[in-house]
Computed example of a mutant assay.
Amino acid sequence: MVDQSGEKTGMLVKVNSPDTSILLISGMPLKNRPVKQLQSFPAIILPGEKKDFKYNDSAYRIYATGQTKVIDSASKNYEVTAYKLFIETTLNHHHYIQLLVDIPSFEGPLHTAIKFVGDIDNDGIPDFIIDTSNYYGSDNSTLFLSQPSKGNVSYTIVGETTGTA
């Protein structure tokens, strides 16, 4: 996860139920509506890979940097270090690149996975749920919401859950 030093963008909420997850976001009215979700989005983006996509007629690119060492190509098992995941777009004639995920190393194979791409907050810009775990067998689903303001676009972490996968 990437937060500015000392910045608090979320709150820890623990639930003792293994069943339903509830999304709690304060200060943002969410309407009960269908969410436009991109289908067929690759979950794993290895260093050196990119995924170009369109959302509401705007072009986006997600790409990763870092070092990759193939452990077993048949099972797609990789050792990844210095992993960074970026989002890039041009909106309103302004070019934006933002670091979303920065993980120095993984305990086992790469776990960072894009679980959801869609517009949760209805601002016309895609939001993401990304598993930012660095440990095999765990899950750290992190919600990134787009924050358009004054011609600028940035992503903020507004929630995360941790647990075992």
Score class of each variant (00 low, 15 high):
Val2Gln: 12
Ser5Gly: 05
Gly6Pro: 05
Gly6Trp: 12
Lys8Val: 01
Lys8Asn: 14
Gly10Ala: 07
Gly10Phe: 00
Met11Arg: 07
Met11Leu: 08
Met11Asn: 06
Leu12Met: 09
Lys14Pro: 03
Asn16Asp: 11
Asn16His: 07
Ser17Lys: 04
Ser17Gly: 08
Pro18Leu: 10
Asp19Met: 10
Ser21Asn: 12
Ile22Trp: 14
Leu23Tyr: 04
Leu24Lys: 00
Ser26His: 02
Ser26Cys: 07
Leu30Gly: 06
Arg33Asp: 07
Arg33Leu: 15
Pro34Ser: 14
Val35Ala: 11
Ser40Gln: 05
Phe41Gln: 03
Pro42Lys: 14
Pro47Cys: 04
Lys50Ser: 09
Lys50Ala: 12
Lys50Trp: 04
Lys50Met: 10
Lys51Leu: 08
Asp52Leu: 10
Phe53Gln: 10
Lys54Pro: 03
Tyr55Val: 09
Tyr55Met: 13
Tyr55Asp: 09
Asp57Trp: 03
Asp57Phe: 07
Ala59Arg: 11
Tyr60Ser: 11
Ile62Arg: 03
Tyr63Met: 09
Ala64Thr: 07
Thr65Phe: 01
Gly66Glu: 13
Gln67Phe: 02
Thr68Glu: 02
Thr68Ser: 11
Ser73Glu: 15
Ala74Met: 10
Ser75Glu: 14
Lys76Met: 05
Asn77His: 07
Glu79Gln: 07
Thr81Trp: 02
Thr81Glu: 03
Thr81Ala: 11
Thr81Gly: 08
Ala82Ile: 00
Lys84Thr: 01
Ile87His: 02
Ile87Gly: 01
Thr89Ile: 03
Leu91Ser: 11
Leu91Thr: 01
His94Asn: 11
His95Val: 04
His95Met: 10
Ile97Gln: 14
Leu99Gln: 13
Val101Pro: 00
Asp102Val: 01
Asp102Arg: 05
Pro104Ile: 01
Ser105Met: 05
Ser105Leu: 06
Glu107Ser: 13
Glu107Ala: 14
Gly108Tyr: 03
Pro109Arg: 15
His111Gln: 14
Ile114Gly: 09
Lys115Asn: 14
Val117Ser: 12
Asp119Met: 08
Asp121Ile: 04
Asp123Met: 11
Gly124Trp: 03
Ile125Tyr: 15
Pro126Lys: 12
Pro126Asp: 04
Asp127Gln: 15
Phe128Ala: 12
Ile129Ala: 12
Ile130Asp: 12
Asp139Met: 01
Asn140Cys: 04
Thr142Cys: 04
Phe144Thr: 01
Ser149Val: 13
Lys150Val: 04
Gly151Phe: 02
Gly151Ser: 00
Asn152Tyr: 07
Val153Met: 06
Ser154Gly: 08
Tyr155Gly: 06
Tyr155Lys: 03
Thr156Gly: 04
Thr156Ile: 04
Val158Ala: 11
Gly159Asn: 08
